[in-house]
């Protein structure tokens, strides 16, 4: 039976083209030399082909990151589309590397490529997972830290999506505050 519907041949296009980056901390190289573009995709099928092909975050070495950003936005504060923005930041405990890290990262990716935040998805620039000895971090970056409504929509829906307990607060920090901080903590502009 060769007759099939066209849907079986056409990949499902995403709203945006996305770029997946990998950062490996090699102290003999510069920060930008350590940041590598892995691949870009713009369909559901191509996303899974890539996702299924690469290591889960929990298998990465300390100091490594994955970054998923909309095509054209570099995963760094200095990019024009990031510099006025900030991030919803989740800091995970050491135990959560085993229990939650990979699951949270996959949910984060699905939120981004599926445009889960409705109109607020336009504010999303990308997401980052940092694998660190003290505790891993996952963040969603948005383009303008003054866009309160969009940021709160993203934060509330994201927290719900990850089934974070209501009592556990997650915070949003501007990149300006993060980059200029002197101590180990950055103040939250918003929290949910």
């Amino acid at each position: 039976t060769a007759v099939t519907s066209p849907e079986q041949y056409i990949k499902h296009p995403l709203q945006h083209r996305w770029a997946l980056w990998y950062f490996k901390n090699d102290k003999s190289k510069s920060w930008t030399e350590n940041l590598r573009l892995i691949s870009k995709f713009d369909t559901v099928e191509d996303f899974w082909a890539l996702y299924n092909h690469i290591q889960q975050p929990s298998k990465l070495g300390f100091g490594c990151d994955y970054c998923l950003f909309k095509d054209g936005i570099k995963p760094m504060w200095e990019d024009d589309r990031n510099k006025l923005g900030g991030r919803w930041l989740m800091t995970l405990s050491k135990q959560q590397r085993h229990n939650d890290l990979d699951r949270y990262w996959m949910e984060t990716l699905l939120c981004l490529i599926g445009e889960s935040f409705d109109e607020a998805s336009e504010d999303v620039c990308g997401a980052v997972v940092n694998v660190r000895p003290k505790g891993d971090k996952i963040s969603i970056w948005t383009g303008n830290c003054q866009n309160r409504d969009a940021i709160m929509t993203i934060g509330q829906q994201y927290k719900e999506r990850l089934s974070i307990p209501i009592k556990t607060l997650i915070g949003y920090q501007s990149h300006d505050d993060t980059s200029s901080k002197s101590g180990s903590t950055t103040k939250n502009m918003y929290s949910v």
């Binding site: 056409i10 899974w48 445009e115």
Partner: peptide
């Protein structure tokens, strides 16, 4: 309109054979 895909829809494609 915006191309939105919910979680279950996206997950449904994770282990599909690659398309042409």
């Amino acid at each position: 309109g915006k191309r939105q895909y919910d979680r279950d829809f996206l997950l449904g494609f994770q282990f599909m054979p690659a398309c042409v």
